[in-house]
Each structure stands twice: as structure tokens, then as C-alpha cells.
Design a protein around this nucleic acid. Structure first.
Lengths: 225, 225
DNA sequence: TTAATAAAATCATCCGATGACTTGATGAGC
DNA sequence: GCTCATCAAGTCATCGGATGATTTTATTAA
């Protein structure tokens, strides 16, 4: 049931332009053909060319200067890569976040400060049970706890990515699943904190991995139905 | 000095739409006003509205369906997440990428196909030495090899993230360091492939971790100077 | 040579028109 | 009453042309 390749001319045009840039045929600083020429090269209208160009401008690949032309700003494509991440699907995103979680715990075991530990412990205690203040609030508290672990890793890039995935996954899960993923019990949560507190990175990583495995298995089962 | 606020109508329009989404006034799944109405609301032409909408579509915030309308796809601002991660600095980015590398190798050990193994082996052989075709070309071949490992993980989200970091790191490293990071020898590279081939996830992960450790140490040393 | 001016090139924006697709309503047939 | 084909309205997709704003280049005068 894949409608497949709902192909936009503007998207295709953007891909063509991106290919020219990534391949290096258009180097940094080069002025690319003007809109009229691109219209002929790509066989699309000028409006479509402009939409394609503007997408690449918004991603930092191109730069337009009124009266002068359109120039290549960068040949690398970080925004495009992140965009692909967004479209990767719930399972892959969940697995990627779990991977970050595992490595974050490893780092946290090495780098955590007493304040980090105190915070994790406090948030775990505040987490409570599902019945307190409704499902939504519980989800928030659960997320806060997990985030405190990631923050203890001291790596801002990992924290940023974790936030990104958490928000993205939350959205998807609300619209596709009905929130019936298994929730590990308090004991499993506490085990992570304990492992980090011991300062053993392997043990910390393993505890998170063990924590995530059954959830990921259940997610697989739900999505394969 | 700064003409600043070189105000594109299309960019301003995109910002207005983004504000509606981020603020939550337009929720996920909502259909936003059609192009004609947006033309009136924003006081710009329909072409400009389309350019603004397409930018947000390319960023994953909106979703257009011909014949039906334009819908809010996500309230997560990938540009914001991207900015935070980019600001995280070279060291954190490198460490985050290494973390992904480790977990990707773990998954690759479990999921790799014979074609994946063949590809990794071929790329490792093609990688050669620094002296072949200059430093730049060697870097490309090295990246291609490492990416083949990540791709063998079968997780598109991780692949996307890896691309993101690779592109971002390359940009930074060219401008800050002088490219004098230690490069693990061929033996270390081959060890990763062997570990993945055995299908032992722990061994695969450990091999990548061992691979990355000295590089990260040296990066720390260089950045602390 | 230098500075002011004019002309050309280019992107920015607007407008109108047609096509393609989706959705909901309508109505015939059972 | 129910099903299904048909139709009409709504919406995005694409096209083409026209005008304005800005930059760059060429020209001209001092």
C-alpha cells in the first residue's frame, strides 16, 4: 500500500540541482545558471525552478543575490541528511534513539557529577506511577528522567539529538500507535541509575540496552501487524 | 555595514507560518488555510506563499496533498535542533558520531547481508593509502568505507545522522584543525569488518570503540591546547 | 584617470490560467 | 435502505507572462 514516489516537479528539480552541487560540478562560490536557463535545462517553469532553488537556499546549499545571480554556498548537506532522518520511520528512529541512550549512559557512568546523580535519583522518585495525574503527565515525568541520564553524558550534541528524536517519536506514536508499548518497571529504571553510579561504563550501557530491548521487540511486533 | 534584514517576502512568510506551527496554533494533522487565503493573510502573492510553504515542507513541518490541502506534519523545528547540535562543538559532535558508529557496528553484526560484507571488503581494499591520489581523495575513500559499515546497520535514521555529522565535522575540521588527527592503520579497519562478519554484536561494537578511542583522545589534546 | 550615468542582467514579486488530484454530494439501480 | 458510479467543488501543481528592485557592467563626460 505504498503510493510511492508522489513525484513533485519542484522536488525533482531540487534533487537535480543538489546533485550538481554535491557532485562538485558546481563548486563553492560558483554562480549557477540563471533562472531562465535552469528553466530550459530542467524543462520546468520558472516558478518551479524558484521553488527548488529556495529549498536549497533554506538548506544552506545556495545563496541568491538579487541583480547578481545564484551562488553555491556549500557543498555539504547537513540539513538534507537530518531531513532524511525525519522521514526514516518510527522503528528506525526509536532504535537510533536507543543507541544514543546506550552510549549516553556509558559516558554518564564516566563523567557524572554528584549533582547529576542527585538529579537522576530525584526525577526517578518523582516519576511515580502511571496513575498519578494521568497518562500524559506521567509520560512527561518519564521523559524528564531519561533526559537527565542523557544530560549526565555531558555531550550537548547527543542531548540535542535525543531531544529531536523524543519529540519526533512522541508525535508519531500518538498518531500511529495507541500508546500500548510496554513500560519497564521502576526496578529497571533504578538499575540504570545504580549502574551509572558505580562508574562502570559497560555495566551502564548494558543496563540501558537490556531496558530497551523488550520495548523495541514489542514495537517491531506492533508495526509488523 | 550591515544592510541586515535583507528581507525576502518568501522568507518572512515562511517565518510567519513557522510561528503558527511552533506556537501550536496550528496543531499536528491540522489543515492550514489554502493558498488563496494565505495570500490574503500574509499579503503576498500566491507564488510567494508557495515558496514559503515548500521550504517548510522540505523541513518536515508541513505536508502538501494535491487536491486535498496542506497539513501540519510536525511541530518539531528541525532547523532549531540542527542549530543546537551544530553549536555543540567539534568534540561533542565527534563523540556523538563515534557513538553512532559503535551502535551501527553492533547492528551491522546482526543484520549484515553478504552483499554488505562484500561491499565493506571492497571499499576497504579500495581505500588504499594516503599517498594515492592525494589527501582529499583518501579522505573520501575513508569516509565511504566507514559509511558502508553504518549502512549495513539497516537503520536509515542512523545513516542520516551519520551523514549529518560527517558533513558537519568535515566543514569544521577544515577550518579549525590542520587535519593532523591520527588515522588508524589498515589492520584496525580490517578488524572491524572481521568482527562484523562473525556476527558477534559485542565484538563488533568493541572493535569500533577501540578504533575510535585514540582518535578521540588526540582530538581532546589538540582542542585543549 | 575618475566619476557619473546609462544599460544590461538577474532575482523578486505579482497576476492569471489550466491541469491534476481529492473529497464529498448526488442520484440511479438494486 | 444500501451500494456504487458519476459529478461537482475545492485544492495544490504547473505554466506563462509582466513588472519592479537590485546589482553589475559598459559608456560617457569632466
Amino acid at each position: 500500500m505504498q503510493p510511492i514516489n508522489r513525484t513533485n516537479l519542484a522536488d525533482s528539480a531540487a534533487e537535480s540541482l543538489r546533485a550538481e552541487i554535491i557532485s562538485g560540478r558546481w563548486g563553492v562560490g560558483d554562480r549557477i545558471p540563471n533562472e531562465t536557463v535552469l528553466t530550459e535545462l530542467l524543462s520546468v517553469s520558472r516558478g518551479t525552478v524558484r521553488e527548488a532553488v529556495r529549498v536549497l537556499v533554506s538548506q544552506g546549499l545556495l545563496d541568491t543575490r538579487q541583480g547578481s545571480g545564484t551562488y553555491v554556498r556549500s557543498t555539504v548537506d547537513p540539513a538534507g541528511a537530518l531531513d532524511r532522518v525525519k522521514r526514516a520511520g518510527l522503528r528506525d528512529q526509536w532504535e537510533a534513539r536507543a543507541a544514543l541512550d546506550v552510549e549516553a549512559a556509558r559516558l554518564a557512568a564516566i563523567r557524572h557529577t554528584p549533582a547529576d546523580l542527585e538529579r537522576m535519583t530525584r526525577l526517578l522518585k518523582a516519576r511515580g506511577t502511571v496513575t498519578d495525574n494521568g497518562f500524559e503527565a506521567f509520560g512527561q515525568r518519564d521523559i524528564a528522567f531519561h533526559k537527565s541520564i542523557v544530560e549526565a553524558s555531558g555531550n550537548r550534541a547527543i542531548v540535542g539529538l535525543y531531544d529531536f528524536f523524543t519529540a519526533s517519536i512522541l508525535e508519531t506514536i500518538h498518531s500511529t500507535l495507541k500508546g500500548d508499548l510496554p513500560e519497564p518497571d521502576e526496578e529497571a529504571h533504578a538499575a540504570i541509575v545504580t549502574a551509572i553510579a558505580t562508574g562502570d561504563p559497560d555495566r551502564a550501557a548494558a543496563s540501558v540496552r537490556a531496558f530497551m530491548a523488550p520495548v523495541l521487540r514489542e514495537l517491531d511486533r506492533l508495526l509488523s501487524q
